[in-house]
């Protein structure tokens, strides 16, 4: 859209290099092997996923690494039928969701797929809180969150 008054267009574009550090490096290496790692806090014993170097609450080291289940329950979800978002790794339609993987103590943010997404009503009838889902992996692994393609409902 061109504005009817004088403006100056300016794109600010800068490069960044983010240090992954040991925890993300190891977590992504796990993804490459189709494993999801969490880590357990030494103090409160909670398991956090993705694995991290410290417990967010206790701020002590969470260095006991655990391969967590690739199944879990839906806590919350939202469906985009046609709306595009900047920075979204997938095109609509998609479902973004919070998933509590089995035996972990926080919710994992990812996508739900493998179902018909064209009708919001149908999706709502299918995806109830607590619905069981399981990770589906992409063939090619890049050491990236999207090595997991999405989570699909576990039938039966």
């Amino acid at each position: 859209m061109t504005k009817e008054y004088n403006t100056l267009k300016n794109v600010i574009e800068l490069p960044h290099k983010y240090a992954a550090g040991p925890a993300w490096t190891r977590f992504y290496d796990g993804l490459k092997q189709e494993k999801i790692y969490g880590s357990r806090c030494q103090k409160c014993k909670k398991v956090f996923v993705p694995a991290r170097s410290y417990c967010p609450a206790c701020q002590v080291s969470a260095d006991e690494w655990i391969e967590v289940s690739q199944e879990g329950k839906v806590i919350s979800w939202a469906l985009s039928i046609s709306h595009e978002f900047f920075g979204m790794p997938v095109s609509p339609p998609f479902i973004t969701a919070l998933i509590r993987l089995d035996d972990t103590d926080c919710d994992f943010l990812h996508f739900i797929g493998g179902i018909d997404l064209s009708d919001a009503k149908k999706v709502k009838d299918l995806i109830k809180p607590g619905l069981k889902v399981r990770a589906v992996w992409n063939e090619e692994k890049k050491g990236h969150m999207m090595d997991i393609r999405h989570f699909v409902p576990v039938s039966g």
Binding site: H16, Y18, G21, T25
Partner: peptide
């Protein structure tokens, strides 16, 4: 360790 490269353009 890994380094994640990214470009922010706004």
């Amino acid at each position: 360790y890994d380094i994640l490269t990214d470009k922010v353009a706004i």
